Amino acid sequence: MFKYFIIWSSFVVPWLSLFFLEKHAVKRFMPVAIFAALLVTVQNELAHTYKWWVVKETFLPQIITYFPFVFGAFLVGTIWIFYFTFGNFKLYLLINLAIDALFAFPLNEWFESLGLYKLVNYTNWEIYLTFTLMAVLIYLYQLWQQEVLKGGPE
Rank of each mutant, 00 (worst) to 15 (best):
F5R: 01
F105D: 09
E154S: 10
Q43R: 11
T130A: 07
F29A: 04
P61A: 02
V13N: 05
V76R: 01
A104H: 01
F2Y: 14
Y83A: 05
A33Q: 04
Y66G: 11
M134D: 01
W144G: 06
F111G: 05
W52L: 15
W144I: 07
L149F: 03
F59M: 11
E45N: 02
V32L: 00
L21A: 10
W53M: 05
A37S: 15
F74S: 04
L114Q: 14
A98Q: 02
W125I: 13
V40G: 06
S17H: 05
E154A: 12
V55M: 14
P61I: 03
L39D: 01
L149C: 09
L137V: 07
F84N: 03
N121H: 15
I63G: 08
L107G: 01
A47I: 05
M134R: 03
L39E: 01
V12H: 13
L93K: 11
I6Y: 04
W15L: 07
L75D: 04
K90F: 06
A104E: 01
F19K: 10
T65P: 11
E57H: 13
I63R: 09
I64Y: 09
I34E: 02
I127E: 09
F82G: 02
P14W: 11
V55E: 11
I81Q: 08
F74P: 00
T85P: 05
L140R: 09
P106C: 07
L114D: 06
E109H: 13
I81C: 09
H48D: 09
G87V: 06
A104T: 03
A101P: 06
V26H: 10
I95T: 15
Y141A: 03
I7S: 10
Q62A: 14
I95R: 09
L39R: 01
L137R: 03
K27M: 05
A135F: 07
A25P: 00
A98S: 13
Q145S: 09
E147S: 11
Q142H: 12
V26N: 09
N124I: 06
A37W: 02
L38I: 10
V136H: 08
F103Y: 15
L102N: 11
L93E: 08
T49L: 13
Y141I: 00
A73S: 15
L97P: 00
F67S: 04
I34V: 15
L93I: 14
G72M: 12
T85E: 04
Y4C: 03
W52F: 15
L149P: 00
H24N: 09
L93M: 14
F20L: 15
K23F: 06
F69D: 05
N88I: 00
E126G: 13
W144Q: 07
V76Y: 03
F84Q: 08
V76H: 03
A25R: 12
G72D: 11
I34D: 05
V76S: 05
L38R: 00
N124S: 15
F105E: 09
Y4W: 14
L143T: 02
V32P: 02
A98W: 08
Y139K: 01
T132R: 00
L94H: 00
F131R: 04
A104V: 03
T130R: 08
V55P: 12
N44V: 04
F35M: 08
V32T: 10
T85K: 06
Y117A: 03
Q142N: 07
L97Y: 10
F59E: 04
W125S: 07
H24G: 00
Q43D: 12
E109W: 13
A101M: 12
T123F: 12
I127P: 01
F20V: 04
I6C: 06
A33G: 03
M134C: 04
